[in-house]
C-alpha cells in the first residue's frame, strides 16, 4: 500500500470511529486551548512566563490582601495564611500555607483564579508570582531575596508535602 493510500485508510477509520458517536461538539483551535489551560497542577507545567520578588509581593500584599488576611497573614479575619507549623497534631491546629498546603503550585493557582475576593483575575502573572513569593517567604519556605518564576516554583517542596494520606475512614 502506498503511503497516501495508508493515510486515506487511517482517515476513513478515524471517520468511522467518529461516526459511531453522536457527532456533537465543535473543534477547538490551539490558541483557544492554550488560553483555557490555566489550572496549575503539582508538576507546574501549566505555569505561565513571568516572575516576582518577595519585596514586590510584600508591597502588593499590603494593598490587596491585608484587609482580609491581616497585616502579617496571621491575624485574619479571613483564613490565616502564615505560621502554624508544628500545630497540626495539637488540640488547636493552625492550618496555613506553610503548615498545611502540600503544593506551592496550588498557591499560585488559587491566587490567580480567585483572589482578591472582590476582584478575582485582576492581578497579572508577575503580581501573582510576587504574592506567591511573599507568602512562601513569610512561611519560611523560600529566602527573603527570592525572585520566583515557573522553574523555581515547580521545584519547591512544601513542609507538609508528606502530610496527606488517602481516604482511610473506618467503614461499618
Amino acid at each position: 500500500m502506498s503511503r497516501h493510500a495508508w493515510l486515506l485508510a487511517m482517515l476513513l477509520v478515524a471517520c468511522a470511529a467518529r461516526a459511531e458517536g453522536y457527532g456533537l461538539g465543535h473543534a477547538v483551535d490551539a490558541a483557544r486551548l492554550r488560553a483555557a489551560d490555566t489550572a496549575i497542577g503539582p508538576r507546574g507545567v501549566e505555569l505561565p512566563p513571568g516572575s516576582g520578588s518577595v519585596a514586590a509581593g510584600a508591597e502588593l500584599y499590603g494593598r490587596q490582601c491585608a484587609a482580609c488576611h491581616g497585616a502579617h497573614g496571621t491575624e485574619g479575619p479571613d483564613p490565616v495564611l502564615v505560621g502554624g507549623q508544628g500545630t497540626l497534631a495539637s488540640a488547636h491546629p493552625v492550618q496555613t500555607i506553610g503548615s498545611y498546603w502540600p503544593y506551592a503550585t496550588t498557591l499560585f493557582d488559587y491566587i490567580r483564579r480567585a483572589m482578591p475576593f472582590t476582584a478575582p483575575g485582576s492581578l497579572n502573572d508577575d503580581e501573582v508570582y510576587a504574592l506567591t513569593a511573599f507568602l512562601l517567604a513569610a512561611n519560611g519556605v523560600v529566602p527573603q531575596d527570592t525572585v520566583l518564576d515557573a522553574a523555581r516554583l515547580a521545584t519547591l517542596r512544601m513542609p507538609n508535602r508528606d502530610g496527606f494520606i488517602p481516604d482511610s475512614r473506618p467503614r461499618h
Binding site: 491546629p93 500555607i97 493557582d109 496527606f164 475512614r169
Partner: peptide
C-alpha cells in the same frame, strides 16, 4: 494526575489527631 486545587488540599481534607490529613475523602 489530580490538580490538587485549593478545594482539595487546603480545604475539603480531613485533619487527623496525629497531624496527618486524609485527602480525596
Amino acid at each position: 494526575e489530580a490538580i490538587y486545587s485549593r478545594e482539595e488540599t487546603s480545604k475539603y481534607t480531613d485533619l487527623m489527631p496525629d497531624g496527618r490529613a486524609q485527602a480525596f475523602t
